[in-house]
Each structure stands twice: as C-alpha cells, then as structure tokens.
Design a protein around this nucleic acid. Sequence first.
DNA 1: GGGCTGTATCCGTATAGACGCATACACTGA
DNA 2: TCAGTGTATGCGTCTATACGGATACAGCCC
Lengths: 109, 109
Amino acid sequence: MAALPLDELNELHANICQAVADPKRILILYALAEEARNVSTLAVDLMLPQPTVSRHLRVLRQQSLVGTRREGPSVIYYLGDERIIEVLDLMQQIMLEALERQTELLSAA
Amino acid sequence: MAALPLDELNELHANICQAVADPKRILILYALAEEARNVSTLAVDLMLPQPTVSRHLRVLRQQSLVGTRREGPSVIYYLGDERIIEVLDLMQQIMLEALERQTELLSAA
DNA sequence: GGGCTGTATCCGTATAGACGCATACACTGA
DNA sequence: TCAGTGTATGCGTCTATACGGATACAGCCC
C-alpha cells in the first residue's frame, strides 16, 4: 500500500466530489441507479445530446463512479458504487433543510 | 411549501455539491469539524492566506454548510451541519476503494 | 468486406471559479 | 474618537470545464 501524501489524498478527495458536482451528472447517476443503460438511451431519456452524455460519462468513469460493459452494438453504463446515491440523497437532504431554515427566517421577519 | 421545479432542485443539488468540491474547502470543513475557529486562526492552521480562507468560507456559508457568530473582535465559523462530514468520509471511502481496485488490476497485469 | 448503428473525440467558444495582492470595511476597547 | 485587529472585497489574471456541432472511430451483422 503506497504512502499517499496528505495533499494528494485531499486532491483526489476533491476530484471525486467534483465529478458529482454537476447537474447533468447528478441526473445521469440517478438514472443509472434506476437502471443501467447505454449512452444513446440515456441521452434520449434525459433529453440531452449524445456527445454531452458521453462526455459526462467519461468524467464519471474516470472516478470509477460508473462502469461499462459491452452488450451487442452498444456500451452499457452502470453504477460503479451504489453508495454514491446515499451521498447524493444526504446532500440533497442537507440542502433542503438549510433552505427550509432560510425560508423560515425570511417569513419570520 | 413552494413547488420547487425539478430542474431548479437539481441545480441547487449541484450547487451544494460544488461547494464541497474543492480541496481547500474540504480541509476547512474538516478543520471546523474538529473545532470552531475564526478566520485568521483557520488561515494560520491551514497555512493559507487569509483572503483565500475568507472567500472559501463565503462559499460554504452561502450553502449554509458553515455558520458564524461574532465573538469579541473576530468571527467564529462553525459547521452548519455535522452530516457534511459523513458525506465527505463516505466519498473518501468510495474513492479509496475504487483506487484500490484499480491498483489491483494494474498489479494483476 | 461494407454498411450501419452506436460511441467517442476534435474544434472553437463561453463561462465560471480560484488566486495573489492590495485595500476597504467593521468592530472593539481604551 | 481613534488606533488597532480582524475580516471581507475589488481587480486583473489564469486555468478548468461545459457546450454545440461536426466528425472520426468501433464493433456488429449480413
């Protein structure tokens, strides 16, 4: 096991966070959590151009958040780690509760 | 409760993820989890220029990930939601395990 | 092998974010 | 009120990333 310098660990940590920090990639991850799909199906389902989907999938794959398998003529993408959905759900919950607190403050004034 | 359009929810979801997707902000969050601190102490502890820390804190505050209280002459920043640390830990774990799998694959070849 | 479907990449462009440094601002305490 | 500490912001620059559209590439199937 290589001795990972702290700075580098921190950098990698930020990298994987960054992969998740895009609206379209979030949509893609939730879609894949529902069901593995190939690129063009994903593109149709999310109403995005195919090259856009392909590029986002590359980012996710670089972080191993998705994996691929070939199936006939197409490439099926699937979730690399289900826990990423837990992360996303928790983030959303944190965000919604913060939003709610803010709204309360506003209406209290 | 306002009817939040899906697109907007998705956008907000990405925003909070993005706030976490920076190495220095990750360091700041972990530091604050340890102990609430004021800006300049944080700057010294993390060996970062004070304006840099201040700007990162603003980003985190905009997402309610940190809160502030004034204490004498300085502004103490504290974690807004402890769960953000769970998220960070889980992300790191996901990342490390993916890294491990990749390393195995390389050494197997 | 050639056509066809499905996927990835190239190009130029536009935007967003991070930084260093200097400086403005805010608040405290005497 | 004024000095002094502590915090935030303005500015210019640099880099990274997302995009549309066109196109290259890959693998399957007849």
